[in-house]
């Protein structure tokens, strides 16, 4: 018996969400009186997992699995589940983890609760609070199957330190040819920039910015804050920004610590996708804009005046607090 956590990595290094997933797994393991086993793919240094409650890591080192490959990763994780007799599998809520979630649920004939926002209400029976209706509500979902899969929402549980002695073990899953029937031919990704999924801070702008040529200040503000940039749906529909930046109910969900909305009215579909963010700031000329009802802090003002000032003052603040 064990809890298995898939600890995600990027270019051979564990991601922040791996530590959050591990922290969550440790909590569940404690309630169930068992320990946490992690599975990692081509990670050179797994030792940090011992700071977040992992007792054992199954290290997969395989050239073929160097980059993410949904079906092959899912097969390997399913094999690990059987090997360690895991009753619960913990994933994150990244795009890749969500790709794995459905596949694993099918392979393991397991109930899957995605977007968990808190530690389980109870482990026997397993009941987990999760996001539903795009953050307009929450469901308390019971898992009825022997094996249970939980996907942890970003920033919902937090990274919690628990020092454990970590044992490392090599693991060579039996990947079959079928696992590679879908092949990656090209990855087109900005390197070095913070992504919406991983960001602590997201700076987002809408139609109030008038045109794509005005995004310079948005990018600069994001850079000063170490934030990711995002936009409202019409902005990506009009091609001012790429689709990947569109957030909201039909776009990417945002669960950052801080979300800054500039020239965004706050339509219900937009708010639904960003309301999991902990602190929201709105900058808008119209004091009646619905976003003011959803925000924690607001400035009624013209973005073209407020944002440059904010950049300047933030630079001073950063210089002082560096």
């Amino acid at each position: 018996m064990s809890i298995l956590v898939y600890t995600e990595a990027e270019s051979g290094k564990l991601k922040k969400n791996a530590f959050e997933a591990a922290s969550y797994a440790y909590k569940v393991a404690g309630e169930m009186g068992t320990e946490v086993t992690a599975i990692s793919f081509n990670v050179s240094d797994n030792s940090a997992l011992g700071n977040y409650g992992v007792s054992k890591v199954l290290k997969v080192e395989d050239e073929k699995l160097k980059t993410f490959h949904a079906r092959a990763y899912a097969s390997a994780i399913a094999e690990a589940v059987k090997k360690v007799g895991a009753q619960v599998v913990i994933l994150s809520s990244s795009t890749d983890s969500k790709y794995l979630g459905g596949l694993l649920a099918g392979m393991l004939k397991a109930g899957y609760v995605p977007n968990a926002v808190a530690a389980p209400d109870s482990v026997q029976p397993m009941v987990v609070k999760r996001m539903a209706f795009s953050n307009k509500g929450f469901a308390h979902t019971e898992v009825n199957t022997d094996i249970k899969i939980i996907g942890v929402s970003n920033n919902a549980f937090g990274i919690i330190e628990n020092s454990t002695s970590l044992q490392e073990e090599s693991f060579s899953p039996e990947a079959g040819e079928k696992d590679f029937a879908t092949r990656s031919v090209e990855v087109d990704k900005v390197v070095g920039e913070v992504t919406i999924a991983d960001a602590d801070i997201v700076v987002s702008a809408g139609r109030g910015l008038k045109g794509p040529e005005n995004w310079g200040m948005i990018e600069e503000l994001a850079e000063v804050l170490g934030a990711a940039t995002a936009c409202s749906k019409p902005v990506s529909d009009m091609g001012w920004r790429s689709h990947g930046e569109h957030v909201g109910q039909t776009g990417k969900p945002v669960a950052s610590n801080l979300y800054i909305a500039i020239g965004i009215s706050g339509a219900i579909q937009h708010l639904a996708g960003v309301s999991a963010s902990k602190v929201k700031v709105v900058i808008n000329t119209d004091p009646e804009a619905p976003f003011f009802k959803a925000a924690d802090y607001g400035i009624v003002g013209d973005a073209f005046e407020v944002v440059p000032k904010l950049i300047e003052k933030l630079k001073e603040f950063k210089a002082q607090n560096a």
């Binding site: 539903a132 307009k136 509500g137 929450f138 469901a139 308390h140 979902t141 009825n144 009802k293 924690d296």
Partner: peptide, 16 residues
């Protein structure tokens, strides 16, 4: 495989 036992709504927010 799963059963939604109950639902709730986010706590109301304080003023901006």
């Amino acid at each position: 495989a799963t059963t939604d036992k109950s639902f709730d709504k986010p706590a109301p927010k304080g003023p901006v």
